[in-house]
Amino acid sequence: MGRLSTELCGIPLENPVIPASGTFGFGYEFAEYYDINRLGSLSFKGTTLNPRFGNPTPRIAECTGGMLNAVGLQNPGARAVLEEELPKLKKVFSKPIMANVSGFSVSDYVETVRILEAEKQIGWYEINISCPNVHGGGMSFGTDPSAAFEVISSVRQVTDRPVIAKLSPNVTDIVSIARACEKAGADGISLINTLLGMRIDLRTRKPILANTTGGLSGPAVFPVALRMVYQVHKAVRIPIVGMGGISTAEDVIEMMMAGASAVEVGAANLIDPYASLRIIEDLPRVMERYGIEKLSDIIGVTEQEKM
């Protein structure tokens, strides 16, 4: 294994960089730009049991250091993902895939995972209990420890593959949610989803987003994400996928020092389709500069340094 290699829930990764759900579609369209097998893995577009168009437009707004989105889980539904999208992805991607799953009830999550179980190339389920842009589901499961426990333990019962709980930062105590997920049998934690935000158009005096609010992502959220990864790493024994504003190789290293075993790159893909690849290519040079021989050596090192 190379200097960039890491491991996530027992599955080796050639490098820690994973494009985040919602910023990379189902991957195959990026294969027109570069060989996506260079990536550690990829987390595909949040999939629900039934097809969803999502929210009305405008769904996108800009802000300093980032953006707001209120897409609202647009996806063709689990069956179409399995039968139409994943076959296209598998033609251009041969590594284990991270399947991002969302729902509006516990049984939604369970049924979606059951359908996706037919796809052998899925390596992990990333259970999104943190979407801020839909009502009556998503984030409501990720803001209450007992609801998070219920979703994760139910999904746990229908698959033997690693289950990763994707957490919302829009909570008072991220650690209690992470602990509930670990107790429910999660094999890993990924964080953070977007931070709830809002913009107003000065001319119309109305919200820019048709949904009024949206999720903030981009470099602006990086310190918040880093802090939460650090706190959760101290509190749980399962591995962490760190994300939130990562746009450089330096950000990857910082996130891993805070406790992440792998990282997801989100908004950066939207302003530079080559962002994830560029980060991977930059890593060896940046590791050199900071005297890092192997990335796996630095996971959670900051907490140890403090002691």
């Binding site: 369209e29 990026f30 168009f53 437009t57 405008p58 996108i60 897409v71 939207l270």
Partner: peptide, 27 residues
Amino acid sequence: EERMGCGFGACMGCSMETRNGPRRICR
């Protein structure tokens, strides 16, 4: 025209319902 995130089809920021189902204005 629509407010776009990426402009190349990745984010679903500029989707529209059409007679042929949801379509991305950018892609």
